[in-house]
């Protein structure tokens, strides 16, 4: 993360209501310059609604949103030129060729260059950056799913955005494609200090990519912190397993190091096959979502750096 600490995205008390149903309740979070922020949550949690409001594609019912100093509901074209959007499902421009499309869409950004940011990204360099060089003259509809998704990202970043939105970017990827994609996202954040907001329901992805994770469930933020903070503060219990005298033991404890020290002090060489299993993000996440769904998750868990 190459952040200068400046708040790029500020969402406060965001509410969204369709008819009589509230799909977002009092959602508050911030993203700082250069940060990779991940919105994690089960289907129907309100991730896409949140991201669409912030992108300016959807009007909110209440609350305050400021992105790059502008309210998305009133963002003009110059503001739009500073954003990159990668949505869930694109099937457009099937007859266009990869490089041709990037060159065409990039042209719209040229008038919005600044002293520090030259827009757009050169199409040849961009094609290379997303690993599509050998497909540059292929028609878009001939691309595989993973290639297509990389093209979507390329289109999202062709204007060298200061803020990039990725809505479930790796849905349907094989592990290799996913790995390559993660490298690409990391390099955007690290080399170009792009602020990135991505949604996913893939925990592993959130853990790998995000500087900070926001867990959304039932239209509320139920946790906000780094992957480690999340894992420690919620379930907080590690599992210790060992074998002594041919017999298997297991114990869950909040202080695994201390427990193991004690274990060795008492039994020393009798202990075999010691295993300490840290609470995984998955355990944490499932625990959080379970709490919300059973109705005990009203109060959000405050973690690490407190927002506001």
């Amino acid at each position: 993360m190459t952040t200068n600490g400046k708040v790029v995205l500020d969402v406060e008390g965001l509410r969204m209501r369709y008819g009589t149903t509230d799909v977002l309740h009092d959602v508050t979070f911030q993203a700082r310059h250069g940060e990779v922020l991940c919105l994690l949550g089960p289907n129907g949690a309100g991730k896409t609604t949140t991201i669409e409001i912030v992108e300016g594609f959807r009007m909110r019912s209440a609350g305050r949103v400021s992105l790059l100093g502008t309210d998305p509901a009133h963002g003009d074209e110059a503001w739009r030129a500073r954003l990159g959007v990668v949505l869930q499902s694109w099937r457009d421009h099937g007859k266009w060729r990869v490089r041709e499309l990037l060159d065409h869409l990039g042209r719209f950004y040229a008038p919005y260059s600044t002293d520090t940011i030259t827009r757009p990204w050169d199409p040849d360099e961009l094609v290379e950056a997303v690993g599509l060089t050998e497909h540059r003259d292929k028609k878009v509809r001939m691309l595989s799913g993973g290639q297509r998704r990389r093209l979507d990202v390329a289109i999202g970043i062709v204007g060298r955005p200061e803020m990039l939105f990725l809505d479930e970017p790796t849905a349907g990827f094989d592990p290799a494609a996913r790995h390559e994609f993660h490298e690409l996202v990391r390099s955007l954040a690290e080399e170009h200090s792009t602020t990135i907001l991505l949604t996913t329901h893939d925990l592993d992805e959130a853990e790998k990519l995000a500087d900070r994770i926001i867990v959304l469930a039932g239209g509320r933020i139920i946790a906000d912190g780094t992957a480690d903070e999340l894992a420690r503060s919620i379930a907080g219990e590690d599992e210790v397993r060992w074998v002594r005298g041919g017999e298997r033991f297991s114990q869950t404890t909040a202080e695994s190091t201390k427990f193991v020290r004690e274990l060795f002090r008492r039994y020393d060489e009798e202990i075999e096959d010691l295993e300490v299993r840290r609470t995984s993000l998955e355990d944490t996440y499932l625990e959080l979502v379970r709490r919300v769904e059973s109705g005990h998750g009203e109060a959000p868990v405050e973690l690490g750096e407190v927002t506001r």
Partner: peptide
Amino acid sequence: EREDGTLLRAKAIPNGMLG
């Protein structure tokens, strides 16, 4: 093109709808 997302793509680009 509304259904396949072309229009939305245009909307995500500065002055994209005009173009």
